[in-house]
Computed example of a mutant assay.
Amino acid sequence: MWKKLAIVLLVLLLLAGGVVTYLWLQVTALPDWYTELAQEDAPAAVEDASGKLQWQPTEGKAGRRSCATSTARPLARRRRSKR
């Protein structure tokens, strides 16, 4: 009887581990739009005359600014006095 109970508990433990692993992979997966955007903005590696790699932006991407740096303003911090 103990042997059957141990086998059932082992199967349940393995099943629970599989469910947790599946859910973790679903929660931490990057969305399709992010991976496609990352591939578009990837710089191209080019070798110079000495054989060293020189990173250059892909065509049409030079001079492009990210949204975070182009329009962002610093946040003003206001502190209230504790009176």
Rank of each mutant, 00 (worst) to 15 (best):
residue 66 S to Q: 05
residue 64 R to W: 02
residue 58 T to K: 14
residue 37 L to F: 11
residue 50 S to I: 02
residue 76 A to C: 04
residue 9 L to K: 02
residue 33 W to A: 13
residue 66 S to L: 07
residue 32 D to A: 11
residue 9 L to Y: 04
residue 49 A to N: 05
residue 65 R to T: 03
residue 42 A to H: 05
residue 35 T to N: 05
residue 80 R to A: 09
residue 54 Q to Y: 01
residue 13 L to Q: 04
residue 25 L to D: 07
residue 79 R to Y: 08
residue 48 D to F: 02
residue 6 A to H: 02
residue 43 P to G: 01
residue 57 P to V: 00
residue 52 K to H: 09
residue 13 L to M: 08
residue 75 L to T: 09
residue 54 Q to W: 01
residue 7 I to E: 10
residue 71 T to Y: 10
residue 34 Y to C: 05
residue 52 K to N: 15
residue 80 R to N: 11
residue 60 G to D: 02
residue 9 L to A: 13
residue 35 T to L: 09
residue 37 L to N: 10
residue 45 A to V: 05
residue 57 P to F: 00
residue 5 L to C: 04
residue 44 A to G: 02
residue 51 G to D: 01
residue 72 A to D: 06
residue 76 A to D: 07
residue 76 A to Y: 06
residue 51 G to A: 02
residue 29 A to P: 00
residue 26 Q to S: 05
residue 62 A to T: 03
residue 55 W to L: 12
residue 17 G to K: 00
residue 61 K to S: 00
residue 73 R to K: 15
residue 45 A to N: 07
residue 12 L to H: 00
residue 75 L to N: 04
residue 21 T to Q: 11
residue 70 S to D: 12
residue 21 T to A: 15
residue 19 V to K: 00
residue 70 S to L: 13
residue 35 T to R: 14
residue 49 A to Y: 05
residue 38 A to F: 04
residue 81 S to C: 09
residue 5 L to F: 06
residue 71 T to V: 14
residue 53 L to S: 13
residue 8 V to W: 10
residue 71 T to H: 10
residue 42 A to L: 11
residue 73 R to Y: 04
residue 8 V to N: 06
residue 47 E to D: 09
residue 58 T to A: 12
residue 5 L to R: 09
residue 41 D to C: 09
residue 3 K to D: 10
residue 35 T to F: 01
residue 76 A to N: 06
residue 54 Q to M: 12
residue 40 E to S: 08
residue 1 M to Q: 08
residue 50 S to V: 07
residue 44 A to C: 02
residue 5 L to H: 03
residue 41 D to F: 08
residue 13 L to H: 02
residue 3 K to H: 08
residue 11 V to D: 03
residue 16 A to T: 09
residue 2 W to H: 12
residue 68 A to L: 12
residue 20 V to S: 08
residue 61 K to C: 01
residue 34 Y to Q: 14
residue 37 L to G: 06
residue 44 A to M: 07
residue 33 W to P: 00
residue 60 G to N: 04
residue 34 Y to L: 15
residue 62 A to Y: 00
residue 37 L to S: 13
residue 39 Q to T: 14
residue 51 G to P: 02
residue 9 L to G: 08
residue 41 D to S: 05
residue 59 E to D: 14
residue 66 S to I: 01
residue 25 L to Q: 10
residue 1 M to T: 07
residue 71 T to P: 00
residue 74 P to I: 05
residue 68 A to C: 09
residue 63 G to H: 01
residue 60 G to S: 02
residue 22 Y to L: 15
residue 49 A to S: 13
residue 33 W to C: 05
residue 51 G to S: 00
residue 23 L to T: 04
residue 28 T to G: 01
residue 61 K to R: 10
residue 11 V to P: 03
residue 83 R to D: 10
residue 6 A to F: 05
residue 34 Y to M: 11
residue 25 L to R: 11
residue 21 T to N: 10
residue 79 R to S: 14
residue 32 D to M: 04
residue 17 G to F: 07
residue 62 A to I: 04
residue 2 W to T: 12
residue 34 Y to E: 12
residue 18 G to C: 08
residue 65 R to N: 06
residue 14 L to F: 12
residue 62 A to W: 02
residue 33 W to Y: 14
residue 4 K to D: 11
residue 3 K to L: 11
residue 35 T to I: 14
residue 2 W to N: 13
residue 16 A to H: 03
residue 23 L to D: 04
residue 56 Q to R: 12
residue 21 T to L: 15
residue 2 W to F: 08
residue 57 P to D: 01
